[in-house]
């Protein structure tokens, strides 16, 4: 049993060339989820953008949040489309809605049995999957059942 939900070898996240995303990917390495919050109207915003979609302010800040949400949608992927996944077998991805933070949504894998029944609305919490020994050290944010 590997420590990683998916085998290494997939493209890894980087903010290189895209400074906009840096506070998120730096934060998760410290087990801190940060998302954007408008400095003028206080709206939560995700994914990262330069302008607030509510009030057109460019004054976008980053705020720490708790990784708690509910499953909004999901899929079990069976057909591998990358060589790193050729021997993995099916795996689960969930889109998680975070009701405490303006219903922003985050995508990750659902930890546990890949054949488990997945029910939309189930509470989940974030689990940080660290890859410190990767050529590009990074952390993925996975989800596990339970609040």
């Amino acid at each position: 049993m590997t420590a990683f939900y998916l085998p290494e070898g997939l493209p890894v996240p980087t903010w290189e060339g895209d400074e906009l995303q840096r506070p998120y990917w730096e934060g998760v390495k410290q087990e801190q989820l940060n998302i954007q919050r408008c400095g003028d109207c206080n709206a939560w915003q995700w994914g990262p953008e330069w302008m607030c979609h509510e009030c057109r302010s460019f004054n976008m800040n980053w705020a720490p949040i708790e990784g708690k949400g509910i499953i909004y949608s999901w899929t079990r992927a069976w057909h591998p489309v990358h060589p790193a996944l050729a021997d993995r077998g099916p795996y689960l991805a969930v889109l998680v809605e975070l009701p405490d933070y303006g219903n922003v949504r985050m995508l990750g894998n659902l930890l546990g049995d890949e054949h488990q029944e997945v029910v939309i609305g189930t509470p989940v919490h974030a689990v940080f999957e660290h890859h410190p020994d990767n050529a590009i050290p990074h952390t993925l944010v996975q989800w596990e059942r339970g609040s």
Partner: peptide, 10 residues
Amino acid sequence: AFNIPYGIMS
């Protein structure tokens, strides 16, 4: 970067 590392690619 928010989907490909999680195997949601195609």
